[in-house]
Computed example of a mutant assay.
Amino acid sequence: MGTTGTTQRETLAGEGALPTLFKSEARATIIEAFVTNRNRELNVSDIARLSDTSRTTVYEQLERLTELGIVEEVEVGGTTRYTLNNDDELANTLYKLQGLTLHRLFELDDDVEL
């Protein structure tokens, strides 16, 4: 290590996997739509409604999320639907993360006096 005062870890802040994954609020809300509807097959309109995002944005983000393996395409009666990829480690981790986060938030709410 050099004497510049910063470590490799410090210089990579903001350039890692999580900022890339959650680069935009739209992507985060679309991921949340899939995680909260884990075993449902959603069409683009469903995803747009659940994430309060435009259909154009949904199409853009679906391309990236399917490339990452988090979401998978499912053909149903000649139409394309999308679902959280339950065979993907990252998708499962995101599902668990949301559950743990909600659990922790509920615990915090119980500690707050109204």
Rank of each mutant, 00 (worst) to 15 (best):
residue 29 T to N: 13
residue 16 G to E: 08
residue 70 I to V: 15
residue 89 E to C: 03
residue 85 N to D: 14
residue 66 T to I: 11
residue 51 S to V: 03
residue 114 L to S: 12
residue 67 E to Y: 00
residue 30 I to W: 03
residue 1 M to E: 12
residue 57 T to G: 02
residue 89 E to V: 13
residue 109 D to A: 13
residue 89 E to A: 12
residue 105 L to Y: 10
residue 42 L to S: 04
residue 58 V to P: 04
residue 88 D to F: 07
residue 113 E to A: 02
residue 94 L to P: 04
residue 31 I to C: 09
residue 72 E to I: 02
residue 38 R to N: 09
residue 82 Y to M: 00
residue 88 D to H: 15
residue 111 D to C: 01
residue 26 A to K: 05
residue 13 A to P: 00
residue 73 E to K: 12
residue 77 G to V: 06
residue 26 A to E: 15
residue 49 R to W: 03
residue 84 L to A: 12
residue 66 T to Q: 08
residue 43 N to S: 12
residue 2 G to P: 05
residue 78 G to W: 07
residue 112 V to D: 12
residue 99 G to W: 01
residue 72 E to T: 10
residue 67 E to I: 01
residue 59 Y to L: 11
residue 114 L to M: 10
residue 27 R to M: 13
residue 109 D to N: 09
residue 44 V to W: 04
residue 13 A to G: 05
residue 104 R to N: 15
residue 25 E to R: 00
residue 41 E to W: 07
residue 73 E to S: 09
residue 102 L to D: 15
residue 80 T to Y: 08
residue 21 L to C: 05
residue 24 S to E: 09
residue 37 N to P: 06
residue 39 N to V: 09
residue 19 P to L: 04
residue 21 L to N: 05
residue 99 G to L: 06
residue 2 G to I: 07
residue 69 G to I: 07
residue 107 E to H: 14
residue 100 L to D: 15
residue 91 A to G: 10
residue 59 Y to M: 06
residue 107 E to G: 14
residue 43 N to L: 10
residue 22 F to E: 01
residue 88 D to P: 01
residue 98 Q to G: 05
residue 40 R to G: 01
residue 22 F to S: 05
residue 4 T to L: 14
residue 85 N to A: 10
residue 40 R to W: 03
residue 66 T to D: 04
residue 82 Y to D: 01
residue 41 E to F: 07
residue 97 L to V: 11
residue 2 G to E: 14
residue 84 L to I: 01
residue 32 E to F: 03
residue 97 L to K: 07
residue 45 S to C: 02
residue 77 G to E: 14
residue 1 M to R: 05
residue 78 G to Q: 06
residue 103 H to Y: 12
residue 1 M to K: 05
residue 53 T to L: 03
residue 106 F to D: 12
residue 101 T to N: 11
residue 73 E to P: 07
residue 9 R to I: 11
residue 34 F to C: 02
residue 57 T to Y: 01
residue 9 R to N: 05
residue 26 A to Y: 08
residue 16 G to A: 05
residue 104 R to H: 15
residue 64 R to N: 03
residue 60 E to P: 00
residue 19 P to W: 00
residue 12 L to W: 01
residue 103 H to K: 10
residue 78 G to C: 03
residue 6 T to W: 10
residue 96 K to P: 00
residue 44 V to P: 01
residue 46 D to V: 02
residue 48 A to D: 04
residue 59 Y to S: 12
residue 12 L to K: 04
residue 77 G to K: 14
residue 42 L to T: 03
residue 4 T to N: 15
residue 75 E to N: 13
residue 64 R to S: 11
residue 43 N to Y: 13
residue 75 E to R: 11
residue 78 G to H: 04
residue 48 A to F: 05
residue 78 G to S: 08
residue 84 L to N: 06
residue 73 E to M: 09
residue 36 T to C: 10
residue 63 E to F: 06
residue 39 N to E: 15
residue 75 E to S: 12
residue 2 G to A: 15
residue 74 V to P: 05
residue 42 L to W: 02
